[in-house]
Simulated scan of single mutants.
Amino acid sequence: MGTSVLFIHGLWLHATSWEPWLARFRDEGYDVQAPDWPGDGETVEESRRDPDAIADHGIDDVVTHFAGLIDALPEPPILIGHSFGGMIAQKLLGQDRAKAAIAIDAAQIKGVLPVPLSALRATLPVFKNPANKHRAVSLTAEQFKFAFANAVSDEESAELYNRWTIPAPGRPLFEAAAANFSPHSPAEVNTGNQGRGPLLLIASGKDHTVPESVTRATLKQYRHSEAVTELQTFPDRGHSLVIDSGWGEIADTCLTWLRGQSL
């Protein structure tokens, strides 16, 4: 059996959006899985039908969920997460639950200060109503285009929206927004861990939801650790980079980096 790789999706995407990645990594000899978040249905359609099951799950709920899955594995896996999945991957890596992690356009962790206007606009569908902290919120096609698919065509944006999007819990966004004012925020990551496995941060130059400046500020949070922490930027990509027609370039970059880390 090959090295285990767990893929962790972020808000508004279903776990099955990782299917092309699973095939690519399986071909390279990895043992792969892309688990659902708590409350997600087994399919996109089931998730859309039951948003109440998705609602009110916070960051700690998701971390505990994936920690339980990791504990059932014969050895710590490699984690690859996108958006909030990237934050979850960093938290688990900081807890020494993973061999390595790749965080792609990861949601901001505690200590990251810049909140660009585009990020505020991208998350406005959640923050416009405080009650959304306890609800699941869906994006419209127009909102998805701005938040995820601004770097691809309107036609591709519509196809991605129809194929992969599901309602998302509002709670993680509220928790991340309040992180720097909370002494015990669930968005806090053990960035000072000296003995953790290597971490690759991937940023997208055209990302509206997690702009490159946020990822660069995240990198600075790791300055007190001597563990491997690297950054790679794709200047012309947006937040949809893991699901759009250019996904293969990102997947191959991850594979190349893992080989470079003897993983």
Results as ranks from 00 to 15, higher is better:
Leu231Arg: 13
Lys133Phe: 03
Asn132Arg: 09
Ser4Asn: 12
Phe148Arg: 02
Pro76Asn: 08
Tyr222Leu: 09
Gln33Met: 15
Ala23Val: 12
Val115Met: 11
Glu142His: 06
Leu13Asn: 07
Asp96Ile: 01
Arg49Thr: 08
Trp164Cys: 04
Gln33Trp: 09
Ala227Thr: 07
Pro169Gln: 05
Leu11Gly: 09
Leu173Asn: 01
Gly260Tyr: 09
Cys254Ser: 11
Thr209Leu: 12
Thr16Phe: 03
Lys99Asn: 03
Asp236Gly: 10
Thr209Pro: 01
Pro20Arg: 09
Leu173Phe: 11
Asp60Met: 11
Pro76Tyr: 09
His9Met: 12
Phe181Asp: 11
Glu28Val: 12
Asp207Cys: 05
Ala119Thr: 08
Ala122Ile: 00
Glu28Trp: 11
Arg223Val: 12
Ile202Ser: 09
Arg259Met: 10
Thr43Lys: 13
Phe174Gln: 05
Asn129Gln: 10
Gln194Pro: 14
Thr16Tyr: 04
Ala136Asn: 03
Leu258Val: 06
Ala179Val: 04
Leu6Gly: 07
Gly68Ala: 13
Ala177Ser: 14
Thr215Glu: 05
Ala119Pro: 00
Thr140Ala: 02
Leu200Val: 04
Val210Trp: 08
Leu139Arg: 08
Ser153Ile: 06
Pro235Glu: 07
Ala179Ile: 01
Leu92Cys: 11
Trp257Met: 11
Phe148Trp: 07
Leu22Trp: 11
Leu139Thr: 09
Ala122Trp: 00
